[in-house]
Design a protein around this nucleic acid. Sequence first.
RNA 1: GGGCAGUUAGCUCAGUUGGCAGAGCGCCACCCUUACAAGGUGGAUGUCGCAGGUUCGACCCCUGCACUGCCCACCA
Length: 890
Amino acid sequence: MLDPSFQPISFEPGIYERWEENGDFKAKSEANKKSFLITMPPPNVTGALHMGHALFVSIQDTYARWKRMLGYNTLWLPGTDHAGIATQVMVERQVESEGSSRVKLGREAFLKRVWDWKKEYGGTITEQIRALGSSCDWSRELFTLDTKSSLAVRESFTRLYHDGLIYRGERIVNWSSGLQTAISDLEVELKPVQGALYYLKYKLADNSGDQILVATTRPETIFADVAVAVNPEDPRFKGFHGKEVIVPLSGQRVPIILDSYVDREFGTGALKITPGHDANDWQIGQRHKLKTISCIGKDGKLNELAGEFAGLFASKARKTVAEKLVALELMDREEKHNHEVGFCQRTGVVVEPLVSMQWFMRMEKLAAPALQAAQGDDPALRFYPDYWKKTYFEWLNNIQDWCISRQLWWGHQIPAWHCKACSKITVPKSSQDADPKSCVHCASSKIEQDSDVLDTWYSSALWPISTLGWPNKTSDLEIFYPQMKANMVRGGQEAKALMETGSDILFFWVARMVMMCTYFMDGRLPFEDVFLHAMVRDDKGQKMSKTKGNVVDPLEITEKHGSDALRLTLLALSGQGRNVNLDLKRLEGYKSFLNKLWNASRFAMMQLDEAKIVTAADPREHLQDLDFVDRCLLDSLDDTVRKVNEHLTQYRPDAAFQEIYQFSWYEFCDWYLELVKLKNGKLHTLSHALETIMRLLHPMAPMVTEKISSELPWGKQGIIIHAQYPLPHDKKLASAADQKKLAAIIMAVDGIRNFRTENKIAPKQQIVAFLETKESALWQEIKPLVMALAKISDVQLNAALPAGLSGKVSNELFTFTFPLEGLVDKEGERTRLRNELKKAKADLDFSQKRLHNPAFLERAKPDLVAMEKRNADLTQEKIKVLEEALLKLS
RNA sequence: GGGCAGUUAGCUCAGUUGGCAGAGCGCCACCCUUACAAGGUGGAUGUCGCAGGUUCGACCCCUGCACUGCCCACCA
C-alpha cells in the first residue's frame, strides 16, 4: 500500500538500485529487433552535476524510456570525458599546493597523478547522473581515454594522416600563454575592450622626409613588422607604391605593399603588416611571400628583437613602447578605440596569435558530406528546433582548418614519430600497427613520439563510433549504428539514433561528429535526429554562476522534492526557445501534480480493492460493462495517448507532458474520480486509466510511476520499465449522445456551483431546485450525479415555479430555479444575474457582428457560420431567461 | 558588420493547419466534502513589443521598426 504522504526521498534510491541490479537498462545484443541509440554527451570527469546535466538527463532518459517501452532495443550509452585542459589544470593546482609542479614531476609521474585522481573521484558525476533516474546502460560505459577510445583515435588519426587530411605545419594559431598551449578558434572568446589606436610615423627610406601614418592597436608588435600595406586604389598613396619605409624604433626597412584587404576608410588607410602576431597579417604575408618574424614568445613576453623592451609582457610593453614612441616623436597621436579582443575561454587570459608548429585537420573535404546531409527538402539529418540548421550551415560553409594539437600531457598523445636524423615524420599505417621503432624514411632508430596531445574534442568527435567499438567490427556497431547515409533522403524513416545535447556545442561537437563519423563509416551518419536543448538560466534569465550565487544544485532539489519533480520541471520549461529559466515555483507546482497522482492512485487502489479488481486490461474487451462516463473518459484518454506520442515524435516533450498533466488532473481526478464515487459501475475503466497514466508518464517521471505501479494489484517491481507504451486506438467509444450527457452534467454542475458561490450559499447547504427542460429523459439519467455533485436535495421536474424570491441557472439544456426565500437576500442573486447578463450580451454582440457581416457569411467556413447562428439563438434565449428573472427580483 | 532566437496575466512559460487568449505560482472569497490543505469550489487579472499590410477574420501569415539575449565575423 502507498504511504499516505508522498515523500520521494523515501523510495527513490531503492528503486534505482533495483533497476540497475536487474539489468533493466541493458541493451540487447540481438540484431533482429528494431533498435534505438542515444549516445550520452560525456560529462567531464572532473565535473559536478549541474542543471545542464539534469536537463539533458531529463530529455534523454525520457526518449530512452519511451523508445524502450515502444519495443525498441534501446541503448543509451553513457561515458565521461577526460577534458584535457580542465583536468590537467586541476591536478596541476593540486600538485602545486604540495610545493611540487607538473614539470618537476615529469610527464609520466604527473600522468599517474591524474589517473589516480580519476580513479578516486571520476565516479562522482556518474553517481549523480544515476540519482536522476537515468536508464543508461552502465555496462557499456566508456571513458574517452579508455583503450576502446584510444584505439578509435589511433585508427582515425593514422587514416586521416595518410589520406592527407591531417597535416603538420607552421601556422599562426591562438596561443594561450596561461595554458601554454595552442587552442582552436572555437576556444577563443571575443570580448569588447576599450583600447587605444596609436598613429605611428613610418618614415620613407628614401630620405625624402615623407612619412606614412599607420594606425595600430598594438605598437608593441612593431618589432615584427615586415611591411606596410595600402589599398592599391587609394589615391593618397599612389606616390608611395614600390617604396620602402623605416619601422619606428626597430629601424627596419620594410616595403610598402598593395593589398585590397586594406580598408581605406579605417585609420589612416595604411596598415602595418605583422604576420607573426596577427592572423590577417599572416594571410597577407602569405599572399605577398613575406617572411614571418616574432617579437613575442610563447611565454607572452617580448624577445630580443624588442631590444630594450625584451622581457616585458606584451600587455605591459604596449604602454612602455608607446611612451618611447612619443618621446622620440614617432607618434602622431593616440585615440580611444573600442575593439574585440580574443580571450582564452578556459583561463580568461588574452589570446596571443603566434606562429608555431602545430597539427591541423583539413576540414573542407570533411564538411561537404556533413552539409549535404542536412540539405534538401527531405534531408537525412534533421535538427530540432529546425532553426539550428541554418547556424550549422553557416559554420560549415566557412569552416577553417582545425588546430588539433595541444601542448598538454593529459590526453591522447599524437601517434606520430619524429626522426632526429632526417626530421621526417613516421605515422603507423593503422591502429593495428605497433609503435614504430624506426623512421620509415631513413630507417634511423632515433625516433621520438610527438609530445603533443590531441584536442579533447578530437576524441569526442569519434564518440558515437568509439563507444560502439569501432574500428573493430562489433555487434554493437552492427546493431545500433544507423544505415542512413549523408547523401540519402530521409523518406519518412524514423531515427535509429538521436543526438541530444546543448546548443552551445553544435560546432564543438555535433558538427565534428557528423564529419568524422560519416567519413569513417562510408558516409553513414552517426545519428539522423539532432535535438538541441536550451541553456538553463535562473528564474530571471541570468546565467547561473558561482560568483552571482544563483546556482541551483540539482541534487539539493532532488533530495528535497524528488528527481521526478525536477525532471518534469525541466521538461516543461524546455520549449522552443534558447533559454530554460528555472523557476522553483514551477517546480513546486509539478511536485504538487505528483502528489495529486499519488493520492488519486491511493484512492483508486482502495476502490479497486473493494471491487476486487486485479487487472488493468483494456475495457474495450468488455464493452457491456461500460457506461457513458467510462466511454467518454476512455476516448479522452485515447486522445491524450495520441497527442503524447505525437509530441514526443516531434521532440516536444514539454507539450507531451502538458497533455498528461491536463488529462490526469482536470479530467481523471476532477471529474472521473468524483463520478466514480457516485456511480455503481464496474471499475475496469478506472484500473485501465490509472495504469495508462502511469505508463504515459513513466519516461518523464520514472521513479514515482514505478513506485505507484508496483503497488497496484496487478503490478510488481520493475515491470513498468518494460511495459508497452500506450498507443492510440482507431475507434472512438462514446456516441454523440454519450458526449452530450457528460457535457450536460458538467454544464449543470458548474452553473450551480457558481450560483452557490455568488449567493454565498455554504457548500454544505443542501438546496432544492425546480427544473424546466425539454430533455427530461436525459435528465433522468444524469439526475443523481448532478444532484450529488451540486448538493441538491430535491428536484421538481417541470413543475409550477415557487412564489417569492428565487434564483435561476440557465444553460442550453436546463433552466434551474432555486427558491431563495429565507436563504439569502436578493441583492446577491441580482448582482450575479447582472454579471451573467452582461457576459451573455457581450457574447450575443460578438455573434451578431459576425452574422451581420455579409463577407463573413459568404467567405467563412459553413460550419463556423452555422455554429455562430446557433450560438446567437442560444444566447438570445438565455438573455430572455435572465432578464425575466431579474425583473422578478426588482 | 552579418545571422539566430525571444518579446503573451504581477512572475515563469504554453498557444502546430488563422475562427471570441491558456497553465503553474501569486492574488481574492468560501470550504479540513474520509484520495489529496502539496487539496477542493468559485472568482479577478491581458491595447498578445510597436507600426503597417494580407484576410470575412491575425497572438498566429507578410513587411518595417524597437528592445533583450545568444552566435558568427579579418576593420588594424
